[in-house]
Simulated assay, not measured.
Amino acid sequence: MRVDFYQLAGESAENLLPLLARKVRADGERLLIVSEDAEQLQRIGRNLWERFPEAFLAHGHSGARHAERQPILLSADCEAPNAAPHVVFADGRWRDGASNFARVFLLFGEEQLQGARDCWRMLGQHADAERHFWKQEGGRWREGP
C-alpha cells in the first residue's frame, strides 16, 4: 500500500482534491473521498464540478442510487461500493480500513499535524507501507523528506 501524506499549508482539502481526482481519473482509476464532515463533502462535491469544468470529474455520494457506478464517490466512511482502489482521507483522520486500498492520500492541516506524525511512525513499522510526504513550495506540490 502506498500512502501519500499531503500537508495543507495555505491550501484547503477542497481545493486540492480536484487536482488529485483529475490525476487518478486520468490514470483510469476510481476514487473514494472520505470525510466525517458532511459540509466538507458538499464543498468537495462543488469543487469537483467547478474547479476544472473541462475535466468533468463525475462523482456521487455513498448511499445514493447507483453509487457503485460512480468513478469518484464521496462518503463518511471507508467502504467503497464503487470498488475504488484509491482513497482520500480529506478530514485528516486515518482509518483502519485503509489497508483495503492500494493507495491512500491523507490530507492534513496544522490541527491534524500530530495525528499525521503518529500515523507516519505507525506506518513505518509496516513493511508493506510505502510512505511519501508532499508539501507546497512556491505554489507547487513537491515531494519532501
Rank of each mutant, 00 (worst) to 15 (best):
Q136R: 15
L48D: 02
D118H: 12
Q42P: 00
D4G: 01
E111P: 07
F133Y: 14
Q42D: 09
A102Q: 13
Q112C: 03
A26S: 12
Q40F: 13
R46Q: 05
V24Q: 03
Q40S: 15
G109R: 02
A67C: 14
E54K: 14
Q42G: 04
N82D: 10
F89V: 11
A76N: 08
L20I: 12
V104I: 13
R46W: 13
W141Q: 07
R43G: 05
E130L: 09
F56K: 04
A127K: 06
G60A: 14
E11S: 02
D128P: 07
A98L: 09
G45M: 05
R95K: 02
N82R: 09
E143T: 03
G115T: 08
G138L: 05
A102F: 03
G63T: 06
G124E: 07
L16Q: 00
R25W: 09
Q40I: 15
E11R: 02
L19T: 09
A116P: 06
M122Y: 15
A98D: 13
N82K: 11
V24R: 04
W120T: 11
P53R: 02
A76F: 01
L17R: 00
C78A: 15
D27W: 12
D77K: 09
Q70H: 08
R65I: 04
W94N: 13
A127T: 09
